[in-house]
Design a protein around this nucleic acid. Structure first.
Lengths: 353, 353
DNA sequence: TTGGTTTACATTAACGATTGTGTAATCTAT
DNA sequence: ATAGATTACACAATCGTTAATGTAAACCAA
């Protein structure tokens, strides 16, 4: 009568449950469940039978049910400030690829650079029963309070790229300081003697470290740091133009600029070109992030590659380690990736000496 | 004795279930459940009580349980060829934003341009009990067989950007033909009389339509199409260089090129510059996608914007419509977004005429 | 042979929410 | 006043999987 109720064997591609397998084989669901998860208490013959039938009927485990029962799903939550530009999409790409290989799916959340959204995202992910959370902090995140719940529930938490320093957390970061050091050193080796720096918000580890690397390099050349040469901003293209303008108006302008971001160095390049100042002959330039456009500008821009994909992979690897070592209570680790400097026209043969 | 078992009220932030609320209020779980979902059979007073306590105890619904029971989760699966460049990250951004607003989370999958992965992704998403699937096809997808399961299970399926034509599907696409028409027309209006075209794989709707738009424009100017002027490739930068080389070697080279992708037009620009051919004076250029770098090159590149964000939003909207109209069996709709031409230096005042 | 261990499986109760069915109590209409 | 409708809630089954506990049978050593 009821047209909805399917007759037996009528809908072969409708979901097959463990109960179906059990009935078919005349064993209990326990046996099926354990056979499928390769439990020791199931005999090899039975295991084979179960596996075979499962394949034949195209059995697909219901992850929801398992997640409900176990309190953990096969989902990984990822929180990023946004999904644009080159960096975050690439990292997400790496994460997704690595996670899927390990049998996990990835849920994406954006904080839109706001800690309030970050909080909401945490809630969302927690009650989606995610197995772990990977996060790169919003620009205005200044404390870890909202991550306490995650820790309390014992859910693996891994930070990447943007972290809060001081706290003991699991994190994958780039050696920003080293990258900045190498880049600045490179400019100095090319003959620059007054290297300026476009610095980002200093409460973010990445910008702080890049500034440090810059200072390190100056020191290694016995050059005194000059706060006049350091321009602080949010590193946008416009701010790069503005910053360059500012530097040019100094009584003693720089002969090189190392920016903690590519957009701002692009802004600087545009301004210099508009004023007829030659790059790199008059002023050498170098940026950070190895954005796609750095290989397109004229001259092409020297920049530091952040190993986006590797960072994604490493983050997932670290997450997996935490999953394995779930017993160890205060296990925490930092993975540091080595940046790679791409030297291009904007910093070569600056002609000084 | 057992240190694991928490005493009552000892762990306030441990998950609160409906059973807890029910016990606390002395009502049944049914009442709680229905109160929370605003069911008509629950009195306003009771509803208030439940809501209040839920807020007080910070009750978080367990989506897994609900999903298990209802057979549908609050997850939307998204399958894209990859997450790089400008287009797909932006669309995903739009999707994520719109989906979250509607109370859904987004699971990302990549096909890596391979239909085999697309099939796997479908399986993954289906047994993650997603509420719907949004997909942009892999390059080598030529049939819809693997989407049949989705349709059979009655799960909303929406395609975006890359679709297979002919089939009746729900889809959000750009009016590629119109965009191509406008762009080519613009080149012709600037004085070009031999406009070449870099065409992509013609089994993909987007490239086919862009070629059609190009032909439309020629016809509207009473210019005969010339297959010699159409170069087919996968639209990479290198292929753009190669294609340009090929066009230049013609007895009668073009005075303008409209490419169905920005990378290839960039390649063309590079080749022209390396040969000292002036853009736009000698040859005018225009691309498609409005990639970030089009505003950076010299000259800046004219290109068609694909409304990435809008496409993401529209896709989610269409999905939501399908959810509402779940009764209607063969509901299917196409949403067509209007492209926007960004005219830049590479196509202006080509000097002809 | 007896007692103890191992092997191989079954019983059964969760996990947390949803929902068809049932049923008092109150209300409405005649 | 009484049948019938409406309101407001409870009972209990169910989704598919997992795992603690139980228990036969077979095996081994003494």
């Amino acid at each position: 009568m009821n047209p909805r109720k399917p007759k037996k064997e009528e809908v072969p591609d409708s979901p097959v449950s463990m109960a179906d397998l059990a009935k078919e084989l005349g064993v209990s669901m326990t046996t099926v469940s354990r056979a499928l998860s390769d439990h020791y208490s199931i005999g090899p013959a039975t295991k084979q039978k179960v596996l075979k039938l499962a394949k034949k009927l195209n059995y697909q485990p219901n992850h929801m049910a398992a997640a409900l029962r176990k309190g953990k799903s096969k989902l990984i939550g990822v929180i990023v400030p946004y999904i644009e530009g080159r960096f975050f999409p690439s990292v997400v790409h790496g994460i997704e690829t690595a996670a899927r290989k390990a049998g996990f799916s990835v849920i994406i959340c954006q904080s839109n650079e706001d800690v309030a959204n970050e909080r909401k995202n945490i809630e969302t992910l927690l009650n989606a029963q995610v197995a772990g959370i990977l996060v790169s902090l919003a620009r205005n995140t200044r404390d870890f309070k909202h991550f306490e719940k995650v820790r309390k529930r014992g859910i693996p938490l891994v930070f990447f790229d943007r972290i809060l320093e001081g706290d003991n957390v699991n994190a994958v970061v780039l050696n920003d300081r080293e990258g900045a050091f190498q880049t600045t050193k490179h400019l100095l080796e090319q003959g620059c003697r007054r290297v300026a720096h476009f610095a980002g918000p200093q409460h973010l580890n990445i910008y702080k470290n890049r500034r440090q690397g810059y200072l390190d390099a100056l020191r290694s050349f016995n050059l005194p740091p000059d706060e006049e040469l350091i321009v602080y901003s949010d590193m946008t293209l416009e701010q790069g133009q503005e910053g360059m303008k500012q530097l040019l108006s100094l009584p003693n302008p720089p002969d090189g600029v190392f920016a903690a971001g590519d957009s701002s160095i692009l802004g600087a390049l545009q301004l210099l070109k508009s004023r007829g100042i030659r790059v790199p002959q008059d002023i050498a330039l170098a940026g950070f992030s190895n954005e796609g456009f750095t290989a397109i500008t004229e001259p092409m821009l020297t920049s530091v590659d952040q190993r986006c994909e590797e960072m994604g992979q490493a983050t997932v690897r670290l997450f997996m380690e935490l999953v394995e070592a779930k017993g160890t209570p205060f296990y925490q680790r930092q993975v540091v990736l080595q940046p790679q400097l791409f030297i291009r026209e904007s910093s070569l043969h600056s002609g000084k000496r």
